[in-house]
């Protein structure tokens, strides 16, 4: 109960601050730039979407199967080495990954996507792995004893019970990815980062905020949508509040 009150007070403070911030920016005419250059805005927004969707999509398609693979009895011995590699990749700052990739692949959209992809793998991989490993072994035992086939254990027991953790990993990865995608502009990958970095370079709050504010809104809305998806597909009996 006390916790709910705290959560709500924090939320209200944040909302009030946001509203105040918007009034401030609009009264200062900071969005004039956005309105006047709406066509360019939609191009940048679309690029940003593409950067995020492609890189995060590929990361999901790589990390989840990889985590499933290394939790199968046959490949269990590779779990340590795979985890080490993935974890190591994550300790490299995302700027550095971008720079390294540029050195290897040159500049442009593809390089940016690839760097973002690499950077999104870890949160998804780590959460999927943890989720599957934390499924109570007595459930697996019961399932085996009742005659589940291995793929039935995976799809009916392990993944549903790990779903909460997996989706939390995806959410983290995507939200980080949306922010990191702004850096793509540094290597010619496009996206809302173009305006942000231009704004910084020329000390123009209008250009800067026309890039930064939509980026923030994008991140918040995506997080919200992913939370809704989570509500939909995580079985009620396995949500943390249920135990």
């Amino acid at each position: 109960m006390g916790q709910t009150i705290i959560t709500w007070s924090v939320r209200i403070v944040v909302y009030v601050a946001l509203v105040w911030f918007f009034i401030w920016t609009i009264t200062n005419g900071y969005f004039d730039y956005l309105v006047n250059n709406f066509e360019e805005f939609s191009v940048l927004l679309r690029q940003h979407f593409q950067l995020v969707l492609i890189s995060a999509g590929l990361a999901i398609l790589t990390a989840i199967p990889l985590a499933i693979l290394v939790t199968r009895p046959m490949f269990k011995r590779f779990e340590g080495i795979v985890s080490t590699i993935v974890n190591f990749g994550y300790t490299i700052p995302n700027m550095a990954i971008l720079a390294l990739m540029m050195g290897v692949m040159g500049i442009g959209f593809k390089t940016a996507v690839f760097a973002l992809f690499l950077y999104s793998i870890l949160p998804i991989f780590r959460n999927t792995l943890a989720g599957i490993q934390s499924v109570n072994s007595s459930l697996i035992d019961a399932a085996q004893g009742m005659g589940f086939k291995p793929y039935q254990i995976l799809f009916r027991i392990e993944l549903p019970n790990a779903a909460y953790s997996i989706i939390a990993g995806v959410r983290t990865a995507v939200v980080i990815n949306i922010g990191a995608a702004a850096l793509a502009s540094l290597i010619g990958g496009g996206g809302l980062g173009n305006w942000i970095f231009t704004g910084i370079r020329v000390f123009d709050n209008g250009i800067l905020l026309s890039g930064a504010v939509p980026l923030t809104i994008l991140a918040v809305i995506t997080d919200l949508i992913l939370r809704l998806i989570e509500r939909k597909i995580v079985p009620r009996g396995t949500r943390p509040e249920s135990s």
């Binding site: 459930l139 035992d141 009996g237 396995t238 135990s243």
Partner: peptide
């Protein structure tokens, strides 16, 4: 039929 001490009910199923 197989029954274990920790009942092994599947939390994701009704």
């Amino acid at each position: 039929g197989y029954v274990i001490q920790s009942n092994g009910l599947f939390p994701n199923m009704t």
